[in-house]
């Protein structure tokens, strides 16, 4: 995730105080989880890429695809697995056109780090370095 480099002092602080960070996470989590769930149907993967996927949570996809739609999207744009649901990537592609940074949808997203599931994505961004390198 693109994060300004001036966060570095803050990151060092968080890394130096893991227990304080953990307490902060516990305080932030209920608020983050409920607000993001309400607004985006957040699944708390802990590594938010909403801004790069047209403000549409890709984790709502039954295949949890973070790099674009699968080949099974129905002719009406609905999901192959849940016929009543619009494909999240049909929505993501449409919405991304309105964003000033619409090119972000073309970035190849790395594999999900499942060890971060359920943690606070906000804090993970601020702490940095919790995400390991993957393909």
């Amino acid at each position: 995730m693109a994060v300004p480099s001036n966060l570095e002092p803050l990151r060092r602080f968080f890394r130096r105080h893991p227990r304080l960070t953990r307490s902060l996470e516990l305080a932030v989590l209920p608020f983050e989880a409920s607000s993001k769930k309400l607004a985006f149907g957040c699944k708390m993967c802990g590594q938010c890429i909403l801004h790069e996927t047209g403000m549409t949570c890709p984790m709502g996809c039954p295949k949890t695809l973070r790099n674009g739609p699968c080949g099974g999207v129905r002719m009406d744009g609905h999901c192959e697995v849940v016929p009543g649901m619009m494909c999240v990537w049909v929505k993501a592609e449409r919405r991304s056109r309105w964003l000033p940074w619409r090119g972000a949808i073309l970035r190849v997203q790395p594999a999900l780090d499942w060890s971060l599931k359920g943690s606070s994505a906000w804090l993970n961004v601020m702490i940095g370095g919790r995400q390991k390198e993957s393909p």
């Binding site: 129905r74 009406d76 494909c87 990537w89 049909v90 592609e93 449409r94 073309l106």
Partner: peptide, 13 residues
């Protein structure tokens, strides 16, 4: 399959 406009871009990805 929709989104048709995105398919060539996905190929690029």
């Amino acid at each position: 399959a929709p989104p048709y406009d995105f398919r060539p871009l996905r190929l690029m990805k």
